[in-house]
Design a protein around this nucleic acid. Structure first.
Lengths: 141, 141
DNA sequence: TACCTAAATGATAATAATAATCATTATAGG
DNA sequence: CCTATAATGATTATTATTATCATTTAGGTA
């Protein structure tokens, strides 16, 4: 009952892709790692168990994880793209501090609902959304 | 009573910046142009009246307009950053079509309010926000 | 008006993230 | 075992944005 791996397996099969040692290592490391990770960070982690892994391979496989629904790309300001695990946690939005660049995860059910209604009212079929509130966090203001 | 120019003037003075022929042309062209414009597009427009204008100058001045509150940077997917005029129009959010990449502007007062509350509840001082709903537009679904 | 300081410009190079290329290797089905 | 082709890893290309820097120019001041 590992939901993430099931999704991954199904996607691999469905698309006619293949299993490789590297791909497995990347998936495992990603799932065990921090919730938000960059390609570079994951590359460095995977290198511990797969010393010959290439950067491009990590990059490609993270994109694969996005494609199959295991990860979300989050791009904040000028920061590098981060890959966030989607499995095992609800969708959430971000409060982003303009000073320290850190972000807080938040969720408001009412906003979620209103967003769907807003899309519907515009003949739009929503698939995902991104809400980012920029400002100053407690420490920085 | 040109609000945009007033804001611009005030900012220029406050920061000890200078007026230049090029800067003036960029501002005028920006204000007269499409609501969402890229650096490159504006560069090409300004070149009509200022044939020797440099790309970097347009880039820098668009950043200046963002800094003084005349424009918002909007970055959608892999598209180039676009600069959107803020004056003379309310803040709005975007419904972005994943297929045709076009976007629709929308606004929901209730969402706006809830966002402020959400920030407040997290000891966060909101300054601006970005809500993007991705999906399929009427034509593309 | 001439002068002076620093802002602005324009050309160019640097940076950096991401994507593309391609020869080689390896997977998985027959 | 064979074969088709997906995947890898090294490298290069691409592309937007930023930095650099010599030169020009704005605008306050003597």
């Amino acid at each position: 009952m590992n939901k993430a791996k099931d999704i991954f397996e199904r996607y691999i099969k469905e698309k006619g892709l293949r299993h490789t040692r590297q791909r497995q290592a990347i998936l495992d490391t990603f799932l065990a790692a921090d919730k938000h990770i960059t390609v570079e960070e994951l590359f460095n982690l995977v290198r511990r168990t797969e010393p010959d892994i290439g950067y491009a391979t990590v990059d490609r496989n993270l994109k694969l994880m996005s494609a199959c629904g295991l990860a979300d790309e989050i791009k904040i300001g000028k920061q590098k793209t981060r890959y966030e695990q989607k499995i095992g946690q609800e969708h959430h939005d971000h409060l982003i501090c303009l000073k320290c660049e850190r972000f807080i995860e938040v969720r408001d059910e009412r906003i979620e609902k209103l967003q769907d209604k807003l899309a519907e009212a515009n003949d739009f079929l929503p698939q995902k959304h991104k809400l980012e509130i920029y400002g100053l966090c407690k420490k920085c203001r």
